[in-house]
Structures are given as C-alpha cells and as structure tokens.
Amino acid sequence: MNPLGLYAPGTSPLHRAPAGPKLLVLLVVVTLVVVRSDVGWLAGACGLVAVGYAVARPPWARVWQVARLLLVLAVFVGGLQLWLVGPQAAAVTVLSLVAALAAASLFTLTTRIDAVVAAVERGLGPLRRFGVRPERLGLLVGLTVQAVGTLAAIAASVREAAVARGAGRSPTAFAVPFVVRTLRHADELGEALAARGVGDEDADERTG
C-alpha cells in the first residue's frame, strides 16, 4: 500500500485538470447519479465514467482494486434488493452505486493530495472573515501523517510486549497500554507544538 495516498501519477488530461473545478464536476455527477432513477440514464453515466478511466489510464492493479470493491458491493446490495424489492430497483441501485463510486475513485486516483489541499484552502478562503484559517489544513495533514507512523510503531511495540508476557490474546492487555501511550504521545506533541509557538496566537481561546 502506498502510504502517501491513493494518487496514481500520470500525464492524462484528467491528471492535468485543476483540482478545484474537477472536484465541482465530481460533486455534480455524484448528485445527479444519486437523484436520477432512470436505468438508461444511469447506464450512460457509467459509460461516461468508464471513458474517464480510459483517458486517465491508471495502473491495472489500481483499477482492479476499485473494480473488486464495486463488484463486492454490487453483488451484496444488488442481491439484497433483488430479493427484497425487485429487479428494477436492484438495477437502479447497482448502476448508481457503480457510477458514483467509480467517479469518486477516479478523482482520487488522478488528483495529488497537495493539489486537493490547495484547492480546499482556496475554496475556504472566504470563510477567513469568520475566523477559519484554511492554511492550517496543510499543517494538520503533515502532523497527522507523521502521527500515524509514530502510533503504528507504538502499537507494534506494545503488541510485542503483550505477547512476551503471554497475554497475546487478551484485548485489554494490548489496548490499555496502547491507548495510554497514545495519550502520552499527544501530550509530548502538544508540548513540542507549544514550544514552537503553535497555538500561541489564540491562547485566549482556551477559556472558551
């Protein structure tokens, strides 16, 4: 698994399209697909998304990943619908499901995370007058990705310790030390951030 996101590099027109407008198009497509319930129209939408994949040409392994998920969902949800409601409803559900999920995955596959962050920061710009600071988003992304790595390492060492004590099968023997060390890590990170002046600007917020 790629730890830096689900983006698959490429040079297609879809890759080069700016992230903001691309996100808007995606939102429109998904809304239409969920609202409309005409089988022919939905099949057309699926076809359109398939053309998108043909243009973007993501690696086969990634396409297969998406397809497998869609297949499992289509069989599960479609099967339930067929059994409980009827073929018409099942077809509508499966088609809108496939179109919406495939379109959303296509966006994620063709858009770099920093491009999405930049687009969202721009989009949230007008909220600045209400006290929202969009530029925090980049900092949060970086800190969280780093924390995932740290906590995964903590989880591994706690697990080893539990196994060494012969408590490998007890959920609390693992979970309690893991949670305690997680919260301690939060304290350390808080001190490190405070030492670098993060959050100072609005220390008065604390009383709120």
């Binding site: 925090r136 924390a147 740290t150 939060a186 808080g190 490190a192 951030l193 959050g199 917020e205």
Partner: peptide, 23 residues
C-alpha cells in the same frame, strides 16, 4: 461559535486521536 484554531494541547490531541483511529 467557529473556533479560530485549537491551542497546542488541543491541536495535538486532535491530531493524535485522528491518527489513533486511522491506526
């Protein structure tokens, strides 16, 4: 009310808990 940003300790707890659920 909309919060401008969390002070350091709140920010750290937010980030680490989000990472915790991801882990």
């Amino acid at each position: 009310r909309p919060r401008a940003a969390a002070p350091a300790a709140d920010l750290a707890t937010t980030v680490v808990l989000a990472a915790f659920i991801a882990v």
